[in-house]
């Protein structure tokens, strides 16, 4: 039999809209963060836009937090969400670093 502590798909109905919206915003803001970061790095956007990228990361993390608490996630999931947020912060840095390297290796 299933352990009763496993997640149960049960959320409060009045929390449905906020969960819906916050989970969508996680992706929207996350997308902005990554997009702006990359655009600045490849000079599609000017340097001053960079703080906005990080601002969007903060918003992403906040939405992730809201979503997690509205869904009453367990300890394990909460940790996973924190790691996901930090991972997202690092991701474009790592990707850009890597890409730059490949470019340098292959250029001219």
């Amino acid at each position: 039999m299933i352990d009763p502590s496993v997640i149960r798909p049960e959320i409060a109905l009045d929390a449905f809209l906020p969960i819906f919206v916050s989970s969508a915003l996680v992706l929207v803001f996350g997308g902005f963060y990554v997009g702006i970061y990359t655009a600045v790095k490849v000079n599609i956007l000017k340097k001053w836009a960079m703080p906005f990228a990080y601002l969007f990361w903060i918003l992403t993390a906040y939405c992730l937090y809201t979503m997690g608490s509205l869904m009453h996630v367990g300890d394990f999931t909460a940790k996973a969400l924190v790691i996901a947020a930090i991972g997202l912060l690092l991701l474009p840095h790592a990707v850009y670093y890597m890409q730059d390297r490949v470019h340098k290796e292959n250029e001219h």
Partner: peptide, 12 residues
């Protein structure tokens, strides 16, 4: 997301 950055990156 990665595919999106990819296009942006190469374009830039």
């Amino acid at each position: 997301v990665a595919m999106f950055i990819h296009v942006l990156y190469d374009w830039g």
